[in-house]
Design a protein around this nucleic acid. Structure first.
Length: 424
DNA sequence: TCTGGGGTCCTAGGACCC
DNA sequence: TCTGGGGTCCTAGGACCC
């Protein structure tokens, strides 16, 4: 038997993990998976979108990524629970540890998805897939779909068929019947923009794409058109990425609770984002050579501006300084909804060239910042903070306080209240 | 009461080199 | 002084994934 690839996908991951947590760790009685429910951000903080939904919620046409307001309109009784990224990371680890018993060639594709190379590990792939699926369910309490195929693309497409708690195969001879009738949007790497262009060419199903004229596709979609045509034919030469490559860049962004209309507040947010980004750089022993600032205005229009640094850095002070300058060059005074700091050209060799015109002593500043990192690791992120972020009172000019470590997802856990009374 | 946050890759256009 | 053409690097923006 040739190559056998499994794609394991947790059904409604964030919601299932929350449901399991409430049932087994908090002793709740309601299983969120059995009612219309969703995980969503806080509307007061303008993070109000659906991150995951239950299957009953799906029946109301509620979609991941849509505003909670719209979802509530579709289903007034929708139960919304806040995200808990710590829980998701723990659940993800538990899943990976179970999968590790079945193959030593695993690619963790995202927090809730993994590819397993099962070549030579099984004489009956479907039976083994069922065994993995049932082991996860019995030991961890949540269900997965497993797609079984000869390459990653087809395994991934197969795991997306009927849910939950299913195993699907997608062998080459099954492609015309199982994959080609699907709308082209269901194909991996066909997003909204590609769908629109393809529809304009009269291509509506994956089958249409599979036999579409290559020159026409290239004219409309460049190399991406040829890639998705290969995918439509079930062709994917990609290997499993067992060892994840190092990051090429690190970024953090934040949608502010209120539009920011003054530079002082914007720069306070940028400083908090620089704190978070650079702490991650130092934790990973990475330095970056490009800093960019992105702004999104109240019309959701985004723009950005970037700069190359004279020397690679991992310092909050240097990144914040660059970000401030970029901000001044970029901002035209439009009220800001979201701010971001992104970095690129990461290097991991630990070198830092001596700079004749460094605004400060790199080594000295780095000792200070790593000392703060150590304190925060030991006593919590809030044990040391800059005076400009200190309570009491507001510091964003509208009665709100700015978190001194801005952006990211893990900080959401603070807003979660898992007191027993809250458990359904 | 509108629309998060983390990434990667590609393309287009301009600067600059020979 | 009517303006080729190949190459690289940089920047901005867009598309896709989860």
């Amino acid at each position: 038997m040739g190559r056998i690839i499994f794609h394991v996908d947790v059904n409604s991951a964030f919601l299932s993990w929350e449901a399991v947590y409430r049932l087994y760790h908090l002793g709740g009685r309601l299983d969120l998976r059995t009612v219309p429910s969703a995980v969503g951000g806080s509307q007061e903080h303008r993070h109000g979108i659906i991150l995951a939904k239950s299957i009953p919620a799906k029946a109301y046409k509620i979609q991941t990524g849509e505003p909670i307001v719209d979802a509530k309109r579709k289903c007034p009784d929708l139960i919304i629970v806040p995200p808990n990224y710590d829980l998701y990371n723990r659940s993800s680890k538990a899943l990976l540890s179970v999968l590790g018993r079945y193959s030593d060639r695993i690619e963790q594709y995202s927090i809730d998805e993994a590819f397993l190379d099962m070549s030579g590990c099984t004489d009956d792939p479907e039976k083994t897939a069922h065994e993995i699926k049932d082991t996860v369910k019995n030991e961890l309490g949540f269900t997965v779909n497993i797609g079984v195929a000869q390459n990653k693309l087809l395994a991934k497409m197969a795991s997306d068929f009927k849910k939950p708690d299913r195993v699907h195969t997608l062998w080459p001879e099954e492609i015309p019947q199982k994959m080609w009738p699907l709308p082209v949007r269901d194909l991996f790497f066909v997003g909204r923009a590609s769908e629109r262009k393809l529809n304009g060419l009269g291509i509506r199903t994956i089958g249409d794409l599979a036999c579409a004229d290559e020159r026409m596709l290239h004219a409309a979609l460049k190399s991406h058109g040829l890639l998705i045509r290969q995918y439509a034919n079930g062709i994917d030469g990609g290997d499993l990425v067992v060892t994840p490559p190092p990051n090429k860049g690190y970024g953090n962004s934040l949608t502010t609770p209120r539009d920011v209309t003054d530079a002082r507040t914007a720069k306070l947010y940028l400083l908090s984002l620089a704190e978070t980004v650079s702490a991650r750089l130092r934790a990973d022993r990475a330095k970056i050579s490009v800093v960019s600032v992105s702004l999104r205005d109240c019309d959701l229009h985004t723009c950005g501006h970037q700069t190359q640094l004279a020397a690679p850095t991992d310092l909050t002070a240097e990144i914040a300084l660059a970000a401030d300058r970029l901000f001044d060059e970029l901002w035209n005074g439009t009220p800001i909804r979201q701010l971001g700091i992104h970095t690129a050209k990461a290097s991991y060799d630990g070198m830092r060239q001596f700079g004749m015109f460094d605004p400060f002593d790199y080594e000295k500043q780095r000792r200070a910042e790593t000392a703060v990192d150590a304190l925060r690791k030991k006593y919590g992120a809030d044990c040391v903070m800059r005076a400009c972020f200190l309570p009491p009172g507001d510091n964003d000019g509208s009665g709100l306080r700015i978190d001194h470590m801005g952006g990211g997802v893990s900080r959401e856990k603070r807003s979660v209240d898992y007191s027993r009374e809250k458990v359904l």
